[in-house]
Design a protein around this nucleic acid. Structure first.
Lengths: 193, 193
DNA sequence: ACTGCTACGTTTAGCTCTAAATTTAGACCT
DNA sequence: AGGTCTAAATTTAGAGCTAAACGTAGCAGT
């Protein structure tokens, strides 16, 4: 029992023996405990989940030093990237950041409180609110984005460029496929607005 | 402006033209707006992030129907997988689930309130608390795990088995590498205790 | 034996998210 | 014109998480 990540791989001791593989151990544990458990997705889903956690935690720490939080930087980045006049509807922000309308409202409210964005009703399109980057908000993006992206490039440095390209391709394929299967609704009305 | 995801790909309309690639568009937008921005990590990090979000949201919806939340199922699963006697220290739970000690305390408290786990001081090891699956907790795992894993297998069905294997391999490599670079501290004391 | 030290778990404050209820203001019928 | 519908944003309730402060209890050195 409790053989997971301990049996013979040495659980991380740097002795150069058999390389440990915690994710594979999870699938093996399910099969040992419940033969027939459908484990084939674990090697992909669990790795993705753990990588997202590692990258996310790291990004939070990097940004904390600059006094920003990840949710706010995400909002500012979406606006910055959209180009002049750095303005998007809240609806569009939600779609691009993959969060609910309520989350958009709260992100915008927080950022507005700090003077990073401004809100105003859209011309011609009723019931629509547009969000614009302020000068301060623009400055915050410029001061932090490179740091974050450069840091993440470093973290991936160990993987040969060729393999990085392979991985990028595979992930793009999976992402598109999964989006389709998850009823696509959040992505069908892209080209408009 | 706002050419992101709009320029010519048609933004998801199923017309069979140039396939849209929202992640690539993000890198392109940074380069257009801020030439020199280090965008090389985006194809990997952003895809991982979005996939984690899609899988996570979907899992939450699947589990909501069964009246469980993802954090609780994660706790129960770790215990279930560890095998008889379905018991782990809170420390070990935190390490395996990649969450802080405080988060473990809260997860365990919630699950204990619902009668899914029990807490008791460890024999022989002072200051250590062990958490055990109750019969009810065991039943909840059995009733839900297959559903979740099967669903995720389905979501990945579109990718040929060969490519799934390739992806699994690449992700394992990256995961190990990134963990090393992130000072490893959370993983060095694995085999012990 | 006494005094810090250290390793563990818990509690607290604050942030962020989702889902659901609520508000708001054009648009459509008759 | 007046009532209903609908599409948008916002607010609210509640779940989770992290970081940091706290409590606690063996242990080591003198």
């Amino acid at each position: 029992m409790a053989s997971e990540a301990r049996t013979k791989a040495g659980g991380g001791r740097p002795e150069g023996g058999v390389p440990s593989d915690p994710v594979r151990d999870i699938a093996a544990a399910w099969e040992r405990e419940r033969p027939g458990t459908p484990v084939s997705s674990i090697g992909i889903v669990t790795s993705i989940w753990q990588l997202a956690k590692l990258f996310g935690d790291d990004r939070r720490r990097v940004l904390a030093r600059a006094g920003v939080d990840t949710a706010t930087l995400d909002l500012l980045s979406v606006l910055r990237r959209s180009g002049e006049p750095y303005t998007l509807s809240t609806r569009e922000i939600g779609r691009r950041s993959m969060i609910t309308a309520g989350a958009v409202s709260q992100r915008v409210a927080r950022a507005e409180r700090e003077g990073l964005v401004a809100r105003h009703p859209a011309q011609g399109r009723p019931r629509t609110v547009e969000v614009t980057l302020t000068t301060t908000g623009h400055e915050v993006v410029e001061a932090t984005v490179d740091q974050v992206l450069h840091r993440e490039t470093e973290l991936l440095d160990g993987l040969a460029p060729e393999k990085q390209a392979q991985l990028t391709d595979l992930l793009r394929t999976v992402l598109q496929d999964v989006q389709h299967r998850l009823g696509d609704d959040r992505l069908t009305h892209v080209g408009e607005d």
